[in-house]
Design a protein around this nucleic acid. Structure first.
Length: 473
RNA sequence: GGCCCCAUCGUCUAGCGGUCCAGGACGUCGCCCUUUCACGGCGAAAACACGGGUUCGAUUCCCGUUGGGGUCACCA
């Protein structure tokens, strides 16, 4: 808390539980969180769970877990919109008493007829309720409608969008309270944001139009007006709206299915639609220090999985070997059909320095490490099989002898042995090394062959070579 | 369709009237390193949507066109 009169910044992220944390929502949440952290304010979380059918415990946990994994925490407990319904109704009724809202008895049929007529006349439809101006109360069911201003215009100085002006004639008398007495989303957000003390409403720009109508409620109640910031949505790589088909996966899918590290997704999402000079790799601490809404672009940006994976590769290379092994082990287990033993996980940790520069996600890391754990005789892929044909068994036999004669089993020693084998056989190093690689890993590509030899150990290495050499029993 | 917003390399972006025949990153393509694949290093191709203004001077300001997006519920 500063001693100056700067009011505290309070932001909120308000996702509705749809069963997954959409990547675009996650970015909006990230921005909202960063803005609060940057200004030393509070970042709040409110679950918009008024749709009881969708708002299951599981759906809510997906969001909570996703944010936590991303490293986006929030202050205090999370709020649940469904708990404030009585309060919403109270505000709606107060607005009726104040003359800023009214009970409307129009039927669904009347509304539909009005809409149809407007469409036929090719003019925009606006609710024209006789009860707006005090028609005597009807006797059927009613909704409470906002008595929206009709003259003049409403201006919002949006932190991202700039100054946006809309003529009040465009605004509608939207429903605040449904005929069953429950609040609509429009009412609920405004009331909750006010009650929670939210000063900065940072959300997707699909809400920009709503802001004008919501502001009407704020003003009717005489509440302090929040600062708005509507950040653009994320699009798919082809420019179309992000659908499941091209990347609109939940945050959990990036973690579980694509094997993305949280710091990579954090960094990628941050750089999507926001920039700080030429900086590409940005830590959380730097992000908090540098982030500002003013630099957020106004146009929607496209999601590029290639760039995310490049960043992910960077963070994998930087990550601690033990942590990576822990994340990779279960994936390896799935690939080889059994869990890794403690000793095998330790081997994975030791192999990590050689493994991690070759992977851009955890799945690749797992795939590239399976050779360490496969039981003899190995399976060979097509390219490996080719490498083991022709003269290779003979060269492998010579390599086997040279290696078998070694006193110490180090990368240096094995390299010397293999090099002299090649030399004495009149072959290039590659002519020996490649078959060796195939025999040891079952593949044509792998970490450096001498590192592989050391990781596998003397006994296993010699046995694997023997399996493929001339004179193999 | 009405209303609102947007527009720099394929993608993410830097640029906030002259420093820009436009910089960085991913991707692509070469070369180097090298036992493979990566990593790393070096280099190349690649953009100011179009048309009018304003100005001594526009990528930068204004208008229009085109293109894209959002939104128009008793959903959130």
């Amino acid at each position: 808390m500063s001693a100056t009169a700067q009011p505290e910044v309070v932001t909120r992220f308000a996702p509705s539980p749809t069963g997954f944390l959409h990547i675009g929502n996650a970015r909006t949440g990230l921005f909202s969180w960063l803005y609060a952290r940057h200004h030393g304010g509070r970042a709040l979380l409110r679950i918009e769970d008024t749709d009881a059918a969708r708002s299951t415990k599981e759906a809510i946990d997906v969001i909570l877990d996703g944010l936590k994994w991303l490293g986006v925490d929030w202050d205090g407990h999370e709020y649940y919109q469904s708990q404030f319904q009585a309060r919403h109704a109270e505000v709606a009724n107060e607005m009726v008493e104040l003359g800023h809202a009214y009970r409307c008895y129009m039927t669904a049929e009347q509304l539909a007829a009005g809409r149809e007529k407007a469409q036929a006349e090719k003019r925009p439809y606006r609710v024209e309720s006789p009860w707006r101006d005090g028609a005597p109360a009807g006797d059927g069911a009613f909704v409470v409608r906002l008595k929206a201003p009709r003259e003049g215009e409403t201006v919002i100085d949006d932190l991202v969008q700039g100054r946006v002006t809309v003529r009040n004639a465009e605004l509608d008398d939207m429903v605040l309270l449904r005929s069953d007495g429950t609040p609509t989303y429009m009412l609920a957000v405004v009331v909750d944001d006010h009650d929670m003390g939210v000063t900065h409403v940072i959300r997707g720009d699909d809400h920009l139009n709503n802001a004008f109508r919501q502001l009407a409620i704020v003003r009717a109640m005489g509440w302090p007006e929040p600062v708005y910031a509507h950040v653009p949505l994320i699009h798919g790589y082809d420019g179309a709206k992000l659908s499941k088909r091209h990347g609109a996966l939940g945050v959990d899918a990036y973690r579980d299915e694509l094997g993305i590290l949280p710091e990579a997704l954090f960094n990628y999402l941050l750089r999507l639609g926001w920039g700080h000079g030429d900086d590409e790799v940005i830590s959380k601490e730097q992000a908090i220090e540098w982030f500002d809404l003013a630099q957020v672009g106004k146009s929607p940006s496209r999601f590029d999985l290639k760039k995310l994976e490049n960043l992910n590769g960077h963070y994998i290379r930087e990550a601690d070997d033990g942590r990576l092994a822990g994340l990779t082990a279960p994936r390896v287990g799935k690939l080889i059909g059994r869990d890794l033993s403690t000793a095998e996980i330790e081997l994975l940790v030791r192999a990590m320095p050689e493994l991690k520069p070759r992977a851009k996600n955890l799945n690749e890391l797992a795939e590239n490490s399976t050779f360490l754990f496969q039981a003899r005789p190995l399976d060979f892929d097509e390219k490996a099989a080719q490498l083991l044909a022709g003269d290779s068994p003979r060269l492998l036999a010579r390599a086997w002898s040279a290696l078998n004669a070694l006193d110490e089993w180090t990368a240096l020693a094995t390299e010397a042995a293999v090099r002299s084998t090649a030399e004495s056989a009149g072959a290039k190093l590659g002519q020996v090394a490649q078959p060796l690689r195939a025999a040891l890993t079952g593949r044509a590509t792998s970490p450096g062959i001498f590192d592989v030899l050391v990781l596998l150990g003397r006994e296993e290495s010699l046995a694997r070579i023997a399996d493929r050499m001339d004179g193999a029993e």
